[in-house]
Design a protein around this nucleic acid. Structure first.
Length: 572
RNA sequence: GCGCCACUAGCUCAGUUGGAUAGAGCAUCAGCCUUCUAAGCUGAGGGUCACAGGUUCGAGUCCUGUGUGGCGCGCCA
């Protein structure tokens, strides 16, 4: 159990996020009025404990608080009584609050006025194009490591999900003002690279006529290996035919470069670019691996046994000691991983995010324990584990066998359904849920496909502005929006107000899906509004008020889609 | 055997820190285009929140146990 606590807690730098402040959609005047009453009437300081929720049922107003129920326990008084005395003493601007009531066991429900929402629309409109950006992270550095696939093959769908989640998380943090480094850990050392080299070499020999040349038992079976071997054969003929270390090594270097190029071009299609490609082999060249062993040895946490070097994880609260250098002299993954993360710590990040497939769950406690032993604050590390991807077509699961090498590559998927669909589909489920990628739905170019639904809403708004321009209709940004009154308008404003908070919560929870769901709701609210409320053809001030409504929606959709890496077409 | 994750409508999934009558999309059925993009909108049906206990004013949410499924438990990464 101890092992899991190491990384299941919330990263330290996010723990300062003020719970109350985070409820940014709760108007300040409301919070202050309540705090004032709690202080003056009950002599209670509730600064960090007063919470408001948005009732599911609209009858209960826009915000509700169960503060009276909570107090009832502490004060041992009837909750409704407490609610009464709170409400009686509340000093609220009747211009902003339409109704305040006590319902059920003692909930205090607040319904805000249309005027309040009109003022909010003006406020959001004035924020400008960057609506949704925050400043919580100013002055802080975040490192987000994602993809990090070995250069031994092509990216598959699991990597695709990893890439899209990681990139969206990185952008979310950028939107909060963090200085973000996107990083790819390039596992180009160790045995799997040897395996790649031998696989290529074997195919190379076979291509050149040595049909009996044995293929490595645990070699890489994919067709791409033959492709690489073919290239070498065509370019260099029999130059590297002889089975000597130099030639195997050539295959390794060539293969690594080839795979890296493919990986990069696939990520390029998704518009994913890393700032740093951290090479594993540099850890060896720069002596970092040795450094880690030496430091841990000095601390008495490393010992030799059976010809191998062991890390005494049992002294660090874990159940078993593990090998960090095999008897062959090769390190296991733990050692370079620890050394690599040590480098990240030394680069002074306030938050270190690793995006990993859930198959890596068991490896993380070892690495974190090692880092802790080196004296680093592991609460700065957040490991985001995502579940697997299954591909379905016509309701049937498409087999993705890695062994046979006939797995569906990410590249093929992008070519088939487009980058926008891939990016959205991979983040539209929560990270911890299995993701079923429905090829039929992905290919669908209609409202059934959520990507098009969202993009269509954006394009529709753009079209309104285009049409207005063509017809010489101008809107006046200075018009106040008090005329807003229809439920479709109010509903849209309510959703719009939430955008900055949704960005925060998505980042805090490392869940781009929250943003994806929200955008869908915004698009729906807009489509409903569009159907019910005409813009062009309306008289002032309705005309300009609705223009603002459309403008803010457009910015939310554009910015939200941008965070998810999805394009926002102006025309469809 | 041990650990992690999941289990909510026919299917795919949401469900803030425990809150009031359980949410969406798809699928099914019924409506809406002489109008700013019908790639859209409106409505209907559909639920023992896997099961059993517990905690309390109140549980899909927290605790314990059980079942089912996925992943992991190496001198592989």
């Amino acid at each position: 159990m101890v092992e899991w606590l190491l990384f299941e807690t919330k990263p330290s730098c996010l723990q300062n996020w003020n719970k109350l402040e985070q409820q940014s959609m709760v108007p300040n005047f409301l919070v202050n009025a309540f705090l004032e009453v709690l202080k003056s009437v009950f002599s209670l300081d509730f600064e960090n404990r007063l919470r408001f929720e948005q009732p599911r049922n609209e009858e209960f107003g826009d915000f509700a608080t169960s503060i009276a129920l909570i107090l009832a326990k502490e004060l041992k008084r009837n909750p409704r009584e407490i609610a009464e005395s709170i409400v009686q003493n509340l000093k609220l601007d009747s211009n902003l609050v339409e109704k305040i009531s006590i319902d059920g066991p003692g909930f205090i429900n607040i319904k805000l006025s249309k005027n309040f929402f009109a003022l909010e629309l003006d406020r959001m409109f004035q924020v400008g194009e960057d609506f949704g950006k925050g400043n919580k992270g100013l002055g802080q550095k975040v490192n987000v490591e994602y993809v990090s696939a070995n250069p031994t093959g092509l990216l598959h769908l699991g990597h695709g999900r990893n890439a899209c989640i990681g990139d969206s998380i990185a952008t979310l943090y950028q939107w909060l003002g963090y200085d973000v480094t996107r990083e790819y850990y390039f596992n180009n050392a160790g045995r799997q690279m040897q395996n790649l080299a031998r696989s290529i070499f074997a195919r190379y020999r076979q291509i050149l006529g040595d049909n009996d040349y044995p293929f490595p038992e645990d070699g890489y079976h994919g067709d791409y290996i033959k492709e690489i071997a073919n290239e070498i054969a065509e370019k260099f003929g029999k130059t590297y035919y002889e089975e000597i270390p130099e030639n195997i090594d050539f295959c390794k270097t060539y293969g690594e470069k080839w795979c890296f190029e493919k990986i990069r071009s696939t990520l390029e299609k998704l518009n994913i670019h890393h700032d740093v490609f951290f090479n594993e082999d540099s850890l060896y060249k720069d002596g970092k691996i040795e450094d880690v062993i030496n430091i841990l040895r000095e601390k008495g946490l490393v010992y030799d046994k059976d010809g191998a070097v062991w890390l005494a994880l049992s002294k660090l609260g874990l159940s078993e000691d593990r090998v960090i250098v095999k008897s062959t002299g090769e390190p296991t993954y733990r050692l370079p991983d620890i050394a690599y993360h040590r480098e990240k710590f030394l680069r002074n990040f306030d938050l270190i995010v690793d995006v990993l497939g859930s198959d890596h769950i068991a490896t993380v406690p070892d690495v974190l324990a090692g880092l802790k032993a080196l004296g680093f604050d592991t609460s700065k590390v957040k490991v985001v584990f995502h579940q697997f991807v299954t591909l379905t077509e016509n309701g049937v699961q498409v087999k993705m066998s890695k062994r046979s090498g006939r797995s569906y590559t990410l590249d093929e998927l992008i070519d088939e359904v487009g980058a926008d669909v891939v990016r959205f589909f991979f983040v539209m489920r929560s990270v911890s849920s299995h993701l079923e990628f429905d090829l039929n739905l992905a290919r669908e170019q209609s409202e059934k496909n959520p990507v098009f639904y969202l993009q269509y809403a954006h394009a529709r708004i753009c079209s309104i502005f285009d049409t207005a321009k063509e017809r010489g209709i101008e809107f006046n940004p200075k018009v106040t929006t008090e005329c807003i009154s229809k439920p479709e308008e109010i509903n849209l404003i309510k959703l719009q107000r939430r955008f900055p908070e949704v960005v925060e919560v998505s980042a805090e929870k490392f869940e781009p899906q929250i943003l994806a769901d929200y955008l869908y709701d915004v698009a729906t609210a807009f489509h409903t509004f569009y159907h019910e409320c005409r813009i062009i053809g309306s008289e002032e001030p309705i005309l300009s008020a609705r223009f603002k409504l459309a403008k803010v929606t457009q910015r939310i959709l554009r910015n939200g889609l941008k965070i998810l890496g999805v394009s926002a077409p102006t025309r469809m």
